[in-house]
Design a protein around this nucleic acid. Structure first.
Length: 411
DNA sequence: GAGGCGTGGTG
DNA sequence: TCACCAAGCCT
């Protein structure tokens, strides 16, 4: 039987890039790193924002992006900066290998005299994978490349009702995404798909009625849009415990810190000394792991923190030592004024806040604290109250980003 | 391919 | 409270 031409409805059409671009021209988001219509994108800003946005929300990135531009206005400035300054500026944003790779990438790009303008060239740089290479090539250099991130995977899996679960479906989703990229305005198209995924084609309760691709969307047709993308769920890791040791030096109140190994969990970040973190760690034995001899006081409550692959519970021990105490090998005393420049990850800021909060909450007591009884847990063994991070640990205010400069396109 | 690798917001 | 999510990369 021959299908009558009249039965070809809008619903059978493939998704058309032009329809999405019409929507984008009207509804595009205004973002600090995004060039306005008519402006030429700055590859440095595009690259910096794409790295920061990996697995990170726009809201979280904005203040970091502004501060990075202020401290490192271009790739040469970033390349010339000491590693510690970059790690410190990144502290709190998470996934710290991104910061290490960012710095290495900046040095490579500065030495080469500029960013490569092809997917293949970009893909070779540290911290730039398939998604980011496509995004920079498309957005900064208007190359017809697909930028397949979580948003695009969601949009495409719904458009074509891809039943294969992630991550196995990734190659197929990429092929489908690449088939949609237009030769005209590929950079706008890449940003348009991401805007669509971020504002309409959301994970929960997508706003299909407003979507420029509602008609050709297979999942919408079936009413199953919220079930895509299909994915296998992974189980979370087991709880690990440990002890953290907060040492304050008499006189200036400096805190004992050390730097973690350069790679792995919280690599190259700062921390107060801690024990190992293990599922079977016993806080009652913690003083065997203390960094120095002192009158240790076990603080009530614990500090909890959830990493990607396991939750952590730290028992905090606190001690005051004499002003002339030397730091143990590989450690340092950092005075309060210097804490803001230490690359302290969130988990470790919680530890310091837990110790300082309790100390600050107490009136200056002329009588010494009672000797702690380490055999039995303190009475208040409930979870620690949620308290704001003390000002000394929080980031300093950031000035508004300078107005965007229109830069000549690099060929 | 699977697992390591942070953090803050949200329903 | 807690599971899930957010512009992934590397080994």
């Amino acid at each position: 039987m021959v299908t009558p031409a009249a039965s070809y409805s809008r619903q059978d059409a493939r998704p058309d890039a032009a329809d999405l671009l019409v929507w984008y021209d009207r509804h595009r988001r205004v973002l600090p790193w995004r060039a306005l219509p008519g402006e030429v994108p700055d590859p440095y800003r595009v690259w910096l924002s794409e790295i920061m946005l990996q697995q990170t929300t726009v809201t979280a990135v904005k203040p970091y992006f502004a501060r990075f531009l202020e401290r490192f206005p271009d790739v040469a400035a970033l390349a010339a900066a000491p590693e510690e300054a970059v790690m410190s500026a990144w502290a709190g944003l998470g996934y710290y290998s991104r910061a290490r790779n960012l710095h290495a990438c900046a040095r490579s790009v500065a030495a080469a005299g500029g960013f490569p303008d092809t997917v293949e060239g970009l893909r070779k740089l540290p911290g730039i994978g398939a998604y980011t290479a496509g995004a920079i090539a498309a957005i900064a250099f208007d190359r017809p490349a697909a930028a397949v991130d979580g948003n695009v995977e969601r949009v495409v899996s719904r458009l074509f009702a891809v039943d294969q679960p992630l991550p196995a479906a990734r190659p197929a989703l990429r092929v489908l995404a690449e088939s949609l990229v237009p030769q005209k305005r590929p950079g706008d198209f890449a940003q348009a798909v991401m805007d669509l995924g971020a504002t309409l084609c959301t994970s929960k309760r997508p706003a299909c009625a407003l979507c420029p691709w509602m008609a050709p969307c297979q999942a919408r047709k079936e009413g199953t849009q919220e079930t895509y993308p299909r994915k296998l769920k992974k189980e979370s890791g087991a709880l690990r415990r440990g002890a953290a040791f907060v040492v304050e030096r008499a006189g200036d109140g400096a805190v004992l810190l050390r730097t973690r190994p350069p790679t792995g969990l919280l690599g190259a970040m700062a921390e107060p000394p801690t024990s190992e973190w293990r599922a079977d760690y016993d806080p009652a034995q913690a003083l065997l792991d203390a960094p120095l001899d002192a009158r240790w006081k076990r603080l009530p409550g614990t500090v909890r923190h959830v990493f990607t692959h396991f939750p952590l519970e730290l028992t905090v021990f606190q001690a005051r030592v004499a002003a002339d105490t030397a730091p143990p090998e590989g450690m340092r005393f950092t005075p309060p004024a210097g804490l803001a420049d230490e690359p302290l990850p969130g988990a470790m800021k919680k530890v310091l806040a837990h110790a300082l909060e309790r100390k600050l909450a107490l009136p200056p007591a002329p009588t010494p604290d009672p000797e702690p009884d380490l055999a039995t847990p303190p009475p208040a063994e409930q979870k620690a109250r949620r308290a704001p991070i003390p000002k000394v640990l929080s980031r300093r205010p950031v000035a508004a980003a300078p107005p965007r400069k229109v830069q000549p396109r690099k060929i």
